[in-house]
Design a protein around this nucleic acid. Structure first.
Lengths: 185, 185
DNA sequence: TTGATACGGAACACTTTGTTCCCGAATTCA
DNA sequence: TGAATTCGGGAACAAAGTGTTCCGTATCAA
């Protein structure tokens, strides 16, 4: 990819992330973004169709990175939380959310949480559905209800975490999480 | 209150609710609302400062209604889920959400879920915090984490419910809910 | 070096917002 | 019932934001 394109894209992502940490998504204008990123109006619209498109692409880039890292680190094709060490995957994802990307905190500390968490859930749902089929018959709860509950709880935990200034460690959080969700067979 | 005021307010609420069931909050314009409600632009701004204000007031009205009904029905001052029959309160709230107000379904079936659920959580958090103080020491989980988890799970369940067309009964949902959250002392 | 491509400034039409002025109609109160 | 008050609504307005177009300049890849 052309260096100019990449530079512009990064500048816009960075400026957008910075703005997101201060204002809510819907209050941010394209003008603010291009001012902060120091790019022309024409350039912005050459890269992204709309403001919504920008947020969408940014979320996708972030999650592709976080989850591919998490999966590599486990060196396994079993991505579900029902693996031998569930806390390992959870902890690993939480570390990425905390350290590797300032962008994530920017997004999570504003009202655009919903869209962000929507993408988050898409990945979590995928991971969870794999190995959960049989563990539901016992509890008498429909599988999709359980999947929704667990991935929703994870997302909810991350939200709580950031709203409290990342006070807890990823290990502590993983422990809490496994303590409050129903045990998976 | 003046009949004219009440009529206008109802017309706007109704039109807004109808629009919310089809479009997302941010895509709806004030022009659409006043067209659908058949009121003048001046009138709208005489009642509500902004579109956000409209959503805010509508949520407040709904929750005041739902929760006051739920509390009356229980005939008790103990509003927490840790009462003798936790499923009774849960079921009762769910019935109200399903039957009494079309508005709620309108709001929940679009992207404004977040704001709506925000108010929802305020009420749930209040109800939960009352009788949860001691039941945390055992599990080793901080109280605010647990409160966040439980109220978040409730809200998440309602979202799942509506996205699946209210297929389950309130009784079934209450059963599922109590099955997946950690037992409260 | 050259051809292609990305950047950026300025101006544009368009949409939406929130306000103001004013008059007619409904309501309340005496 | 009649007068004073309050509400509704039409029209026009400035201001802000959106997304596009045109065109000259700067940068890149080969």
């Amino acid at each position: 990819m052309d260096r100019r394109q990449q530079k512009t894209r990064d500048a816009i992502f960075s400026a957008f992330s910075e703005l997101l940490s201060q204002n809510s998504f819907n209050k941010i204008t394209v003008q603010q973004i291009i001012d902060a990123a120091n790019v022309g109006r024409t350039t912005f619209y050459a890269h992204f169709e709309t403001k919504d498109d920008l947020l969408r692409e940014m979320c996708i880039e972030i999650f592709d990175h976080v989850f591919s890292s998490a999966l590599q680190a486990k060196n396994t094709h079993d991505f579900s939380l029902s693996a031998e060490k569930p806390s390992a995957l959870i902890t690993h994802i939480l570390y990425h959310l905390r350290d590797n990307r300032k962008n994530i905190l920017g997004i999570l500390s504003c009202e655009s949480v919903e869209l962000f968490l929507g993408y988050f859930r898409q990945y979590l749902d995928k991971s969870l559905a794999l190995k959960l089929a049989d563990s539901c018959a016992l509890s008498g709860v429909p599988q999709d209800f359980l999947i929704n509950h667990i991935s929703g709880s994870f997302v909810n935990m991350v939200r709580w975490w950031t709203e409290n200034g990342l006070a807890k460690t990823p290990e502590e959080l993983a422990e809490y999480f496994l303590a409050v969700i129903p045990p998976i067979a």
